[in-house]
Amino acid sequence: MPGTIRSVSLVWVVLLVCLSSRRTSVGAAPICTNGQVGCHVLSLDNLFDRVIQHSARMHGISSDLHSEFEQYFLPSKNQIGRVGRICHTSTIITPNGKENAQRMAREQLTEVILKLLIAWRDPLWHFHQSISHHHDFNNFSSNKALEMNDMVHELRQGVEKVAEKMQVLGIISNSVTSLASPDVLLPSDSADWRLMKDYDLLYCFRRDSNKVQNFLKILKCRIVPDHGC
């Protein structure tokens, strides 16, 4: 009896070791910034894939939530659509087409991505608060809002890591100002979003998240073109 228990526990230990090793190697390998011993150095294309996946997921959530909002506001949809939506991020000059985007420098593109993400840091938090206090929305929507809020933060950190990596590798210059002082990038009229309705806010975020995703893809395919482009 003790023998079997011992063997079973041994099996468990082995399984746990295998799982943890897999997790560390595949899932959550720390990014080595200072060259610590034991950390796994991720390649740039791997980093890009991660942030692209993250942005895609974020955009997916925003699209789902937007669809819910459209259903909710369906009777007055046309009216809403006619209202001139001015996103608070519209002041951030972003390429409006492929050629413009391709024309942009890597540094600029990186900066645009970071600007967008920073710009949505506070609005999403308030959006979540508004949704959670809104009785017309269920917990599902509220959780999605919170999830979006978290993902924006995570994605910004991820993009910063990628930017640092690119700077380290000499791919981009050190002129990305958002890395040094993110708050500087905030537009002067950054408080405009407070005047926006929830639906408009969500509409804008959906677009911006798609922008971020697309810019990241463009950036990736420009820098590491052989990986999935």
Partner: peptide, 8 residues
């Protein structure tokens, strides 16, 4: 233009 990453 999938090569540029503009469309996936």
């Amino acid at each position: 233009d999938t090569r540029s990453g503009w469309i996936t």
